[in-house]
């Protein structure tokens, strides 16, 4: 600036132009250089983020793959592991059975409630329903261990301190309902207004519009939301850890104790004295991650398909 304000009178025009140009170029270069430094920081952040994340994937696959065989998947865990047979830990079929049982019941409970709840949020407006919606959203963020305490108090205790797969299913359903409700509601809101208005203009009752127009259109997105909520619930440990007990055999009975993959991992990792059981956590982790990713990828495929069909 000073260059322009007070040019030295002895300068020729060319000299002055060169001076201004060099000053401008210096400023420009400094800014470009600072910009580069900033971008380098961003790149560093990306690399710092990817190192631990890729390390988890590498460790889970690298240490877990040797557990993925039919014997490990199809035999239940060993009833007793002692110093002398540390490596005879059996398999995980009791936990796979338990996980399938608990998650199936939980999903069956959560789906109808969530869809109805989503419809009622969709169909009504006003202050009360906004409060209810905010409430549902807050529920998503509450720590899962609290749900465990709640089910322990209202289900396990009244049943005479009986630990059951059903209690675990109720806890997981309670974890799923807020997620599914919000996902299903946004699926309903994605239905074009023109469709519903056209149906209403033909004189259809709102319930009929919902059943025949809105729901069929929203189903793919709803399935996506339901699968994402399931993928969340499959790995939940804290809410079910103290209410499902444990079972050493493949038990399909809802009113009996059960073992699930996450609770088995927790017990092997935290309550076991044997390295063989701790190492087996990698195998269980690989199977759990596989299930979670499968649910996620399948839901992505569904979204991609429907979007392609409609555009």
């Amino acid at each position: 600036m000073t260059v322009i304000d007070a040019p030295r009178p002895t300068m020729t025009d060319d000299e002055r132009r060169a001076l201004i140009q060099s000053a401008a170029r210096a400023t420009y270069n400094r800014k470009v250089w600072m910009s580069r430094v900033f971008m380098v920081f961003l790149g560093l952040a990306l690399i710092i983020a990817l190192i631990p994340l890729l390390s988890i994937i590498r460790d889970v696959i690298g240490n877990g793959w040797r557990y993925v065989n039919w014997t490990f998947l199809s035999t239940p865990q060993a009833a007793e592991v002692s110093m002398f047979n540390q490596n005879a830990i059996g398999g995980i079929s009791n936990a796979i059975t338990g996980t399938l049982l608990i998650d199936a019941i939980a999903t069956l409970i959560a789906i109808p409630i969530s869809i109805l709840m989503a419809i009622s949020l969709y169909e009504s407006s006003g202050r009360i329903m906004n409060a209810v919606r905010m409430y549902v959203e807050v529920m998503i963020g509450l720590p899962s261990i609290l749900v465990g305490i709640f089910i322990y108090v209202v289900v396990v205790t009244p049943m005479g301190y009986r630990f059951t797969a059903f209690a675990g299913a109720l806890a997981l359903a309670m974890m799923m309902i807020p997620l599914m409700t919000i996902a299903c509601e946004s699926a309903l809101r994605a239905v074009p207004e023109t469709l519903t208005e056209a149906a209403l203009a033909l004189g259809a009752k709102p319930s009929r519009v919902m059943l025949r127009v809105v729901l069929p259109y929203a189903v793919p997105r709803m399935i996506t939301g339901i699968m994402l909520s399931m993928s969340r619930a499959v790995g939940e440990t804290a809410p079910i850890l103290f209410i499902i007990g444990s079972s050493l055999v493949n038990s399909w009975k809802p009113l009996q104790p059960a073992t699930s993959l996450p609770t088995m991992m927790f017990n092997y990792l935290f309550n076991s004295n044997y390295q063989s059981q701790k190492d087996a956590c990698w195998g269980i982790a690989l199977i759990l991650i596989f299930a979670v990713f499968l649910l996620n990828l399948a839901s992505r495929v569904i979204v991609a398909r429907t979007q392609k069909g409609r555009s």
Binding site: S55, I56, A285, I289
Partner: peptide
């Protein structure tokens, strides 16, 4: 690819981060 990796890792159950922390 990278944003998919990041999004998938957001749904990895916390017990698996626990196992990684404990054993690695």
């Amino acid at each position: 690819i990278i944003s998919s990796i990041v999004e998938l890792l957001a749904v990895v159950p916390s017990i698996i981060y626990g196992v990684w922390g404990y054993l690695t």
